[in-house]
Design a protein around this nucleic acid. Structure first.
Lengths: 332, 332
DNA sequence: TTGAAAGCGCTAACAC
DNA sequence: GTGTTAGCGCTTTCAA
């Protein structure tokens, strides 16, 4: 932030006032064409760009939004899901000429004061973590605009989520329709709404078809590949002939366990995942999975946040995005 | 950024001046114990935190640093390598109470003006991309503090890198020492210094042992799993009995291709990767690979940047981190 | 040890 | 259509 040209200097060079330069910079009306022309030329030549700290102070708006993924989820940050979400959020910020601040570290308690500082961020995207996280409740008590990524456990929260229950239902129904009898599930962390909702969808589909829910056919992982592998190892003892994994990474782990056991997919055990992430899907056998619109989720969340920033947090906004079953090889 | 308590308000409540409150907030000397006590109590009660835009304007320092990974690399952002690097950078910022701004999108040309705005960032971490990227050259012409992540193709650049040549050399030598004759390589994008350096290490190791370099044993991927798979498919025609892949993702793809061809690892074909990323390594067979200290790389880069910000870009700083060969199952 | 006052660079209300 | 001026909230001389 070295010494540099400022409005004043441009004004002198163009023999006009600071205000006029400001008007030109911000594309406001009421500047004569000749003057605008002259000032623009000088701005061009000098490469002048208004100082953002000064503008933020004056405008009470920084054009920075934060993305917060706190500790309880950080271990999973290496999941390609987050990379993709992050990318879409970043792209949307770029498109609207906003800056994205990233908060990956920190316990909900210690990170909170950093999120509530004045003069840094206009608003925040809060990635859902464990249901018991206190951060959401705390944020609700502030007047800071924020949007939740996932289904919140509190009311009065604006959020964007995907239809996890329907997705899991689709996946399970698909397996049922393939005449499989013993349909296992590898759940994600059930202390997250995502994990719980996908489990719910599985349960619902079974119930609709009058298939009893059997404990020994249900394992719990934490969305990681290795946890899917381990859960499947366990489930193999119960001889399932199909398995719904709550995300693609765990499905991939399950496939590995099934293949190592000398069983074939989908002949001996059919597999369906959830996410439709290219790296997980493209291995062989190609994964049948539930596609969720990650990019749209990121974009919607950012745009919803801009709306909250501009128009206030009332009324509360919800967007739940549709999912789609993509049938490939692993389900037969 | 709603109306809120400011220094002035605290000052009134404590019956002191703004200056005194500022001194207390910034832990400066020359405030009497009683006054300090009194002011602190009120700050505590009100939850006052100084406005960062105002502070930035005054101090000419924002305590924000940027991480820039531009378009040419963005497709690879889903590589767990970047997730891990990102995480370590984020953690280090957190530790030093700085904010991290993330720039994932944008052509080098269009992103440049956004990086050079005054009053936004104190400095920048620039992830290496394609060698021909013009961003590095442009940054060099500015007075903005920055540190390059990877080996730069220009001189006068402060950077942090890992010893890619030695790593690839270690991997290849290891395969040679196992008495393999036909040692293939799956290179990463050779238009990146990382890809080129790892190729260089492979070449060097062969030469040292008097093994001729054979074109038909060398494939090129782009660091993605699928590209490793495809490159291996091709290479299998040349009947290699070992292969060095320039990263773990490609190694994983190669393993898949080898196994699908009905060959066993390491018996028929030995495989060595590069990165030592848990998700890639933990599948079976466990991957022999070159471990690079990603977390240390992130931390070093951030700390180097702080140093550049504080003390100027001269002298130029370099840190090249050591790598280590981790022998597991896939190399026999 | 404390307070008064200037000013960081910008925008916008108001006056001309 | 253009300029003057008053701050935004903070830190920091400088004076008391």
């Amino acid at each position: 932030m070295a010494a540099h040209v400022d409005l004043e200097k441009i004004a002198k060079m163009a023999s006009v006032s600071r205000s006029t330069v400001s008007r030109v910079v911000n594309d406001q009306a009421d500047v004569s064409p000749e003057v605008r022309q002259r000032v623009k030329k000088i701005i061009q030549e000098t490469g002048f760009q208004p100082n953002l700290a000064a503008r933020s102070l004056r405008n009470k708006q920084t054009d920075i939004i934060g993305l917060v993924i706190c500790n309880t989820m950080v271990g999973l940050f290496t999941d390609p899901y987050f990379a993709q979400l992050n990318l879409s959020i970043s792209q949307t910020c770029y498109k609207y000429n906003k800056t994205l601040a990233l908060y990956l570290e920190g316990e909900p308690d210690t990170i909170f004061p950093r999120l509530t500082r004045r003069g840094l961020m206009d608003g925040i995207l809060l990635q859902a973590g464990k249901m018991k996280d206190s951060l959401l409740k705390k944020m609700l008590k502030t007047d800071i605009p924020f949007v939740y990524l996932g289904r919140p456990t509190e009311s009065g929260v604006s959020y964007v989520d995907i239809d996890n229950v329907t997705g899991a239902h689709l996946a399970t129904s698909h397996l049922i329709s393939m005449k499989h009898k013993r349909i296992a599930a590898i759940c994600g962390d059930l202390d997250t709404t995502t994990g719980a909702d996908r489990h719910e969808g599985y349960t619902l589909a079974l119930r609709e078809e009058g298939i009893p829910y059997q404990e020994e056919l249900v394992g719990e992982g934490d969305f990681s590949e290795i946890s899917g592998y381990q859960a499947m190892l366990q489930l193999l003892n119960s001889k399932p002939n199909a398995v719904f994994a709550a995300n693609d990474m765990m499905a991939r782990g399950a496939i590995r366990a099934i293949q190592e056991a000398g069983l074939s997919i989908p002949h001996d055990v059919a597999v369906v995942g959830f996410d439709d992430l290219p790296p997980a899907v493209s291995a062989s056998p190609l994964l049948t999975t539930v596609r969720q619109p990650i990019n749209q989720m990121g974009a919607s969340a950012v745009e919803m946040l801009f709306d909250v920033i501009q128009h206030g947090s009332q009324p509360v906004r919800h967007t739940v995005l549709d999912v789609e079953l993509i049938i490939r090889e692993s389900s037969g």
